[in-house]
Design a protein around this nucleic acid. Structure first.
Lengths: 150, 150
DNA sequence: GGGTATATAGTAATTATTACCATATAATAT
DNA sequence: ATATTATATGGTAATAATTACTATATACCC
């Protein structure tokens, strides 16, 4: 369900003070982009945010959308739903299994845990979906990337 | 861990008979691509499969890799690890939550289930990873897409 | 209001993917 | 084994998503 207006405005106020704390400038573009995100539960792409904002801010640049989203993400103001968006990744292993993903280098490893294979997912709001299955993505940092940092 | 050789060869034999059952041709390119996938647990992209195969099959075409992977995926011979690979998707909602993904239209909805927020993921082979968190992706078909089919 | 570091717009470049088409080849029947 | 044919491949061009670059603009501190 779409967030309520008052909640959205609260999140925007909070966003603005966070920007100040973080020492980045509060520009109308940044507020517009954040508002579009706070205002929807549709998990939009850069392009679809661009199309929305263009309706009332016709000369905003697509580049700004990309750059701003990257900035927000690095500062932890928003998150990327699909960190493996960069390229399609394939697997010949059709056995049900989960994945360990290194958030730094995007490496993916298989993860097997029997206790996670038969979770009860029928509890909540699945009214609209016919659920076919699920996968768990464990996000972490692999040893190689930890070494690099230290 | 990388699959053993005998296991890989078994999977390739099985792959070949599946191709015949499915009525698609068993070409050296297809076998090579399938072998590369069966031979690794690295979840490679089209490009990295291409680079591997080029070492011993120098004039294979990148287009063939893409087309073949698509064919395999449609027939259920391989799977795509990250079905949302098409474009980065953003979220201003930083509360921990999970996602419902429509495999047909790639729509993403939030999914809340308290019983899935504190799973014990420390059981197995996490030696190399510092795990930061996890998300569950429920794959399904949304109502709109079910309507379209019927 | 003026100065300055940061942000934006616009365009070009890069990367991943798909479309198209002429040629080649696996599979089937002979 | 060979000819036939539908399907697959290779090569190139087109498209889509993202990033790089640079001159101009503007938020913020004084």
């Amino acid at each position: 369900m779409k967030p309520e207006n008052t909640m959205v405005e609260n999140r925007i106020s909070s966003f603005i003070s966070q920007c100040k704390d973080l020492g980045i400038k509060v520009t109308p573009q940044r507020v517009a982009i954040y508002r579009e995100l706070a205002n929807t539960d549709q998990h939009p792409s850069a392009e679809s945010i661009y199309q929305k904002i263009r309706n009332y801010y016709p000369n905003i640049s697509l580049t700004t959308i990309y750059r701003t989203l990257e900035t927000f993400e690095k500062l932890g103001l928003v998150s990327v739903v699909n960190i493996l968006y960069n390229a399609a990744r394939y697997d010949a292993n059709l056995e049900p299994h989960h994945h360990l993903v290194c958030v730094a280098c995007k490496k993916v490893e298989d993860y097997y845990d029997n206790s996670l294979m038969n979770l009860d997912i029928s509890k909540s709001n699945l009214a609209n979906y016919k659920v076919l299955g699920y996968t768990i993505q464990l996000n972490g940092i692999c040893r190689d990337c930890r070494k690099k940092k230290s």
